[in-house]
Amino acid sequence: MAQSEPPPPYHHDLGGAARFRCTPIEPDDPPLSDFDRRVDALRALLRQKGLITTDEQRLAIESLPPEAYDGLTYYEKWLRAIVAVLLARGVIGWEDLA
């Protein structure tokens, strides 16, 4: 790997990413929606029950296609990640969600 150019960062690995250099940070913090709070609570429960770990969730979010990573809201990404982990573990099947 030494002689060639390093590969680009994964899409989620944002530290120093030049494409945000001129993007101002919106300092406001709008209240979370009911959906957001439900997803958050569901994730906490599933973690407590040993059905998802932080690192599995992180990997599932990192594995989202870049368009989804950029376009979905924070808790939409969490929901997608929870679904991906529960499907992979066989806790639920796709028929449950179709």
């Binding site: 960062p9 530290g15 690192d55 990997l59």
Partner: peptide
């Protein structure tokens, strides 16, 4: 696709 916790910018 791996799960890495060392940011790319620090390599």
């Amino acid at each position: 696709r791996l799960h890495l916790r060392t940011p790319h910018y620090l390599r």
